[in-house]
Deep mutational scan, measured.
Amino acid sequence: LQLFIKTLTGKTSTVEMEPSDTIENLKAKIQDKEGIPPDQQRLIFAGKQLEDGRTLSDYNIQKESTLHLVL
């Protein structure tokens, strides 16, 4: 599924993920695209901070969801 990652600067990146992927996997993919180390990334979806060990489906993240990346 395609996700949009929006940064505080207003920049939006697109990443392709599976519902079974963990937040950790997602942060690794963001690191590949943006060069931001996972330990500096905080991802927010629906007002919640996402935890590394959980999966996208745990948070009911659907295709074309927008996640907010806070550093």
Rank of each mutant, 00 (worst) to 15 (best):
L1G: 04
Q2L: 15
Q2N: 11
L3Q: 02
L3Y: 03
L3C: 02
L3F: 09
F4A: 05
F4C: 05
F4R: 10
F4I: 11
I5S: 00
K6P: 01
K6Y: 08
K6S: 07
K6R: 11
K6N: 05
T7D: 10
T7C: 13
T7M: 15
T7R: 13
L8I: 12
L8D: 11
L8M: 13
T9W: 14
T9G: 13
G10I: 03
G10A: 03
K11P: 06
T12K: 07
T12A: 06
S13W: 15
S13C: 13
T14I: 14
T14E: 07
T14D: 04
T14A: 09
T14G: 04
V15P: 00
V15I: 14
E16Y: 15
E16D: 09
E16W: 15
E16M: 13
E16Q: 11
M17Q: 03
M17C: 11
M17R: 01
M17V: 13
M17I: 11
M17P: 01
E18C: 10
E18N: 13
E18L: 14
P19F: 09
P19G: 08
P19S: 12
P19N: 07
S20R: 07
S20C: 07
D21T: 05
D21L: 03
D21V: 03
D21Q: 07
D21M: 07
D21R: 03
D21E: 07
T22V: 05
T22L: 10
T22N: 04
T22I: 04
I23A: 02
I23M: 03
E24K: 12
E24W: 14
N25A: 14
N25E: 12
N25S: 13
N25Y: 13
L26A: 02
L26Y: 01
L26G: 00
L26C: 01
L26Q: 01
L26F: 03
K27S: 01
K27V: 02
K27I: 03
A28S: 10
A28P: 00
A28N: 10
K29T: 06
K29D: 01
K29Q: 06
I30G: 01
I30M: 04
I30A: 01
I30K: 00
I30W: 02
I30E: 00
I30F: 03
Q31D: 04
Q31M: 13
Q31K: 10
Q31T: 09
D32L: 14
K33Q: 13
K33G: 06
K33H: 08
E34H: 14
E34G: 05
E34C: 14
G35E: 03
G35N: 07
G35I: 02
G35V: 02
I36N: 02
P37V: 05
P38S: 14
P38Q: 13
P38T: 14
P38L: 13
D39F: 11
D39P: 08
D39T: 10
Q40P: 02
Q41A: 05
Q41P: 02
Q41V: 10
R42S: 09
R42P: 00
R42E: 06
L43G: 00
I44V: 09
I44P: 00
I44C: 11
F45H: 05
F45R: 02
F45Q: 02
F45K: 02
A46M: 14
A46H: 13
A46F: 09
A46Y: 09
A46W: 09
A46S: 08
A46G: 12
A46V: 06
A46K: 14
G47A: 03
G47S: 04
G47P: 01
G47C: 05
K48H: 11
Q49C: 10
Q49H: 11
Q49F: 14
Q49S: 10
Q49K: 09
Q49M: 13
Q49I: 15
Q49L: 15
L50A: 02
L50M: 06
L50W: 01
E51N: 06
E51K: 08
D52M: 05
D52Y: 05
G53I: 06
G53R: 09
G53K: 11
R54Q: 08
R54D: 04
T55A: 07
T55W: 04
T55Q: 08
L56W: 02
L56V: 05
S57N: 10
S57E: 11
D58H: 12
D58W: 13
D58T: 05
D58S: 14
D58Y: 15
D58L: 03
D58V: 04
Y59L: 05
Y59N: 02
Y59P: 00
I61K: 02
I61E: 02
Q62K: 12
Q62T: 14
K63R: 12
K63A: 15
K63S: 15
K63L: 06
K63T: 15
E64G: 15
E64H: 15
E64N: 15
E64R: 11
S65G: 06
S65A: 12
T66S: 05
T66H: 15
L67P: 02
H68P: 01
H68D: 07
H68K: 07
H68F: 15
L69T: 01
L69A: 02
L69M: 07
V70K: 07
V70D: 06
V70M: 12
V70F: 14
L71E: 07
L71Y: 10
L71M: 09
L71I: 14
L71D: 06
